[in-house]
């Protein structure tokens, strides 16, 4: 080998059917068409869902989301009770889960030695891996009796002057569903919060400690406060997950389409009514009404996820510019 043997071949090699340029554009085209297939899939999903619920939209219009009368036999459908049930259970779940998750994330990121933190993180993510049907089963046979025997009586005695804590508890009901939801979204919020805390530069922590802050004050000043918008984003994503959760809720909420003040009473959510009735629905109007319920649920989760995306995007951009 020496340099006199240098041969140049610059244009297309005859060995190949296609030039490299066309190979590259072809592969890019292929990838792009797969991308558009997936985008098309979501579009078709939205279109089909709307089309199927069309006769219900025509029949009930806006009344569908302002009335709560739901009777498949008489073919009268109003979905307000389900919207209410969905929002209430998710809201209580966030109230329970968000503070807990933030504390757990702080504990793992700021207090624990590395290996304990990793193990804890792994265990928390294991909760996320448990199928929701298992949560439902456990909620039905383990949690519901505990709510009936201990939690509900305690709440009734302590805060019984509030209407939401009045009335009997049968175990299954809004409160049980909310607790199950809270357990299920803790991992989501925790791992997102951990990511948010990790991004805080360690020199900010050191600056706070150098000023004589206790660890609590350090976490408050240097970790929690600058991460607030990220924490909100994490909670909103958790909310999005809670809104759409189906099986666990369907098994413990009691499935009664009524708006009752007491959180001990049974209720129903958008997702649970679909799970309960879709397979057995016979009339076209019933199917359409259930599809419309699905569409409402879709729109709600879409909006919530969109907000979360916006908050997190805003947050990461701010971090990036810092």
């Amino acid at each position: 080998m020496n340099s006199s043997s240098h041969k140049l071949q610059l244009s297309g090699d005859k060995k190949y059917l296609l030039s490299f340029k066309s190979q590259d554009s072809l592969s890019k085209l292929l990838l792009r068409s797969v991308a558009w297939t997936v985008i098309g899939l979501l579009t078709i999903m939205i279109i089909l869902l709307t089309r199927e619920s069309f006769i219900a939209i025509e029949e009930f219009g806006l009344e569908f989301i302002t009335t709560s009368y739901w009777n498949p036999v008489l073919e009268e459908f109003g979905g307000l009770a389900f919207i209410y049930g969905t929002l209430v259970t998710s809201f209580i779940a966030i109230l329970l889960a968000a503070p807990l998750s933030i504390l757990v994330a702080l504990f793992i990121q700021e207090v624990c030695p590395d290996w304990i933190g990793k193990t804890l993180g792994l265990l928390v993510e294991m909760i996320a891996a448990i199928p929701s049907i298992v949560f439902g089963l456990w909620g039905l046979f383990f949690l519901a009796p505990i709510v009936r025997e201990y939690i509900a009586p305690f709440l009734r005695q302590t805060f019984g002057f509030l209407p939401i804590f009045q009335g009997p508890s049968f175990g299954i009901g809004v409160l049980t569903a909310s607790i199950i939801l809270a357990i299920m979204i803790v991992p989501t919020i925790t791992s997102l919060c951990r990511e948010v805390f990790k991004v805080v530069p360690s020199h900010q922590r050191e600056a706070a400690l150098a000023l004589g802050a206790t660890r609590f004050e350090m976490m408050k000043i240097a970790v929690f406060s600058p991460s607030l918008s990220g924490i909100i984003g994490a909670s909103v994503l958790g909310l999005g997950r809670a809104l759409g959760e189906t099986m666990a809720v369907a098994m413990v909420i009691g499935n009664s389409p009524a708006i009752v003040a007491s959180i001990f009473a049974p209720g129903a959510t958008l997702a649970s009514v679909i799970a309960n009735e879709y397979a057995e629905s016979t009339s076209d109007m019933h199917v359409a009404a259930l599809c419309l319920i699905g569409l409402v649920l879709f729109v709600i989760t879409f909006i919530v996820n969109f907000i979360a995306r916006g908050v997190i995007w805003h947050y990461t951009r701010k971090q990036g510019n810092r």
Partner: peptide, 20 residues
């Protein structure tokens, strides 16, 4: 120009070029 050939000429395949 590489050994007298213009590598920015239209017929040149950049992938093939890089092998040289």
């Amino acid at each position: 120009s590489l050994l007298g050939q213009n590598i920015y000429a239209p017929h040149v395949d950049p992938v093939e070029l890089r092998r040289n």
